[in-house]
Design a protein around this nucleic acid. Structure first.
Length: 433
RNA sequence: GCCGUGGUAGCUCAGCCCGGUUAGAGCGCCGGACUGUGGAUCCGGAGGUCCCGGGUUCAAAUCCCGGCCACGGCCCCA
């Protein structure tokens, strides 16, 4: 039979064992964020298109699900969650004591060509910390991110930089903010040449800015942080005092997290992230076995103001849950299931045993163990064959012989042994193992 | 948006180049051998608009064109 109606392009059905694995890494995120004092918020899937357009410009439209609802409002399926949280802050959280710490787990949508690790619907988990401009908040969120991946047992590297360094340099060269965004975007995309050309074209000291940007972009290390900072200082101290402060900030952050993390920390003075709203510390998580980033975040002190609110500092990150899972699988890391690993199949061999089987089913459930009743009405031989292929650990048989004695037969599938016991003693038999 | 490879049974695929009986295999599923005891074995069964549409032809799974979808890469991003 061929189905006429199929999945929409870019959409997935997520089935076991992937669905259980995804649920599990989601649960671990929820636990980790909660332990850091974050509380869950659930924003709507659909927002006004304006919310995303304001931040990223009109051209974002082509990579988004945008449509008019029945009342003619231009709406969008969220491509990310930070914008929703900023809106939520303005509408509902302004009066709360600072810092405001919220986390979310949400499906997001982007209308792009599907390929490995990329679907049109995907899952993100993230935190936002609003109201603190302290570098300590950046450090703590990085620690949270790091703890999450430690709990998953996934080796990662965290690349850390401070986009404030670039912004300060370009600012002191009297380059406007929009131009800054473009230059930073170019650097992030690896078009260093073009970025340098555009920067020196507008700068008050073209030769100097070109040299400094070029050299900054080469400073990257996972071991010798001190030397990297010394080089950075040398570049900035004479002409770019504000950039020097950003560098100092980055140094403080690194001192805070150094030695406290499970991840490999890569310091990258030339690091930029394309998203326009980042203003300070930025970071990205990479896993050695997959060459796209699996999480990213940073400080965005200007976003809330952009939405018409008061100038409010904020920092946070988003984790790509699908890519994290993909990375775990490619690394061959076991994502163990939850709960008891005992699974029981109850087999009534005669109709009169069905009521008893149902009672037993409920009794086993009450001690937190999985149990089901055999439903197919097939021969015992096939039933046992089925039970072993489905990895049941115990089979309970209730036939005429058992009924007469008020007992049940319980078979240990692994040991291939069985005994007939009083119905009351059943639970003890199962949990013995 | 662009490029490459593919689409035949629930799954993995053969057949296509070189058009020609009722389109095949392995695995899986259901059953029988075996009506109360296992992953084995043997036997049987169900399951196909050969992705869709058009064209060429006496004849198309097979050749041609268009579309859709999947996978991978570019771009972009998470």
């Amino acid at each position: 039979m061929r189905l006429v109606i199929r999945k929409i392009r870019g959409m997935r059905d997520i089935l076991p064992p992937n669905s259980t694995a995804l649920t599990r890494i989601t649960r671990i995120f929820r636990e980790t964020a909660s332990m850091y004092g974050y509380r869950e918020v659930i924003p709507p899937t659909i927002e006004s298109f304006e919310l995303f357009a304001l931040k990223s410009g009109e051209e974002i439209k082509k990579s988004m699900y945008v449509f008019k609802d029945k009342a003619g409002r231009e709406v969008a399926l969220r491509p990310e969650v930070t914008a929703s949280i900023a809106r939520m802050f303005l509408e509902e959280l302004m009066a709360k004591p600072r810092p405001i710490k919220v986390f979310y787990i949400a499906n997001c949508f982007r209308y792009e060509e599907p390929q490995k690790g990329r679907y049109r619907e995907f899952f993100q988990a993230g935190v936002e910390l609003i109201g603190s401009d302290s570098i300590l908040s950046d450090a703590e969120t990085i620690l949270l991110l790091d703890e999450y991946y430690e709990r998953l047992n996934l080796p990662i590297e965290v690349i850390i930089g401070n986009v404030g360094i670039y912004r300060s340099i370009l600012g002191e060269e009297r380059i406007g903010e929009e131009k800054q965004d473009r230059i930073i975007w170019l650097i992030d995309k690896g078009f260093l040449e073009e970025a340098l050309r555009e920067a020196s074209g507008k700068a008050s000291n073209p030769v100097r800015v070109k040299r400094v940007l070029e050299e900054l972009s080469t400073i990257r290390t996972s071991s010798n942080y001190d030397e990297a900072f010394r080089e950075g200082e040398k570049l900035l101290k004479d002409n770019y005092p504000a950039a020097l402060k950003s560098l100092e900030n980055l140094r403080k952050l690194l001192e805070m997290v150094e030695g406290a993390t499970w991840s490999k920390i890569v310091l990258n003075l030339g690091f930029a992230r394309g998203l326009a709203y980042y203003t300070g510390i930025i970071y990205e998580v990479k896993s050695p076995n997959i060459n796209v980033s699996i999480a990213g975040g940073g400080r965005y002190d200007g976003l809330i103001e952009l939405y018409g609110g008061p100038k409010t500092p904020a920092t946070g990150f988003a984790i790509g849950l699908d890519r994290t899972l993909l990375s775990l699988m490619e690394a061959g890391i076991e994502i163990s299931g939850e709960g008891s690993n005992i699974r029981v199949l109850i087999v009534p061999l005669v109709d009169e045993a069905i009521k008893l089987a149902m009672g037993i089913l409920r009794k086993i459930h009450s001690v937190g163990v999985e149990a089901s009743i055999e439903l197919m009405g097939r021969s015992l031989r096939r039933t046992l064959s089925y039970a072993s292929s489905m990895k049941y650990t115990h089979v309970i048989l209730i036939g005429r012989r058992e009924m007469e004695e008020g007992k049940v037969t319980i078979r240990d599938m692994a040991r291939k042994t069985q005994k007939t016991v009083d119905t009351e003693k059943l639970i003890d038999e199962i949990s013995d193992d």
